[in-house]
């Protein structure tokens, strides 16, 4: 179908429902905005239209919707939200795709909600600090000697590079955690993101110096054993990171690590 044909079948206006919350302590509520249809809109440009003219379908002037975004190229991870029930980046979510026929009973309505697994700051803007804190806990870095000239890093096969690169594209967006039934606002579960990151650093020749310390964290509360194997994470990852594979590998590394620890305990 050509662009022109597609456009002619589009509605002249469409409705966006936004789940709003004024601050972390107040109760959420929904507000609807009716907007003029234009071709090539994505969810970010919809939010920009609302920001420029925040008037609800009832004609009420309201405060503009707050949301988090930056690169708009699906590489920084900031604009993650729940769109028509699915967690994804707002920048790469096109309106035409949401309005496509056969998209369910919602018809011409687009529903935007904040991620439910993280505390809301305001409206669609959530606080994902927990993901960064977890990176600290698993020592997500390569312990280099310092920045002085010491020649190149360890040589690596292209195969190993591809394996690491696949994980290193993780943009800490939180989709995997939003979709995970084990990960909740109040529990300790660390989730797929951090297991994959631990495996990323354990795979590197210098990075693996901290392998045991990372595995200690993943053995503890909220670690690999709490994974319920629902495999939702891998389905929603926008970067197609092999998350379940990483969790599997983490499990195997922990088994070996635990046995080693057991035999070393007496020494």
């Amino acid at each position: 179908m050509s662009q022109t044909e597609t456009t002619s079948k589009r509605p002249s206006r469409f409705t966006v429902r936004v789940k709003r919350q004024d601050d972390p302590r107040s109760a959420p509520y929904f507000q609807a905005f009716e907007l003029e249809y234009r071709p090539n809109l994505n969810v970010i440009s919809i939010l920009q239209m609302i920001a420029a003219k925040p008037v609800t379908t009832e004609g009420k002037q309201v405060a503009p919707v707050a949301w988090d975004c930056n690169c708009l190229e699906e590489v920084c991870g900031a604009c993650t939200m729940v769109i028509n029930g699915k967690v994804r980046q707002a920048c790469s979510c096109l309106l035409d795709e949401l309005l496509a026929p056969g998209r369910g009973a919602s018809g011409e309505i687009v529903t935007l909600e904040p991620m439910s697994k993280f505390p809301v700051v305001r409206d669609l803007f959530v606080d994902r600090q927990r993901m960064f804190d977890n990176l600290l806990k698993i020592k997500a870095w390569v312990p280099i000697d310092g920045t002085h000239a010491r020649g190149p890093g360890p040589r690596e096969t292209q195969e190993a590079q591809e394996e690491r690169y696949a994980i290193s594209r993780c943009m800490t967006c939180g989709c995997c955690l939003e979709a995970c039934p084990q990960f909740t606002k109040d529990n300790m579960f660390r989730g797929a993101q951090i297991m994959a990151q631990a495996m990323y650093f354990n795979r590197h020749d210098t990075g693996k110096q901290l392998k045991d310390q990372r595995l200690d964290v993943l053995m503890g509360e909220g670690g690999v054993h709490d994974c319920g194997n629902a495999q939702n994470c891998v389905k929603v990852c926008p970067k197609e990171i092999p998350l379940t594979e990483a969790i599997g590998r983490a499990g195997r590394q922990i088994t070996v690590h635990a046995i080693k620890k057991f035999f070393n305990a007496g020494k």
Binding site: V142, I144, R164
Partner: peptide, 11 residues
């Protein structure tokens, strides 16, 4: 230095 930091440069 970036290589030592673990940046996955193509090989």
């Amino acid at each position: 230095l970036l290589d030592r930091m673990g940046v996955p440069f193509n090989r």
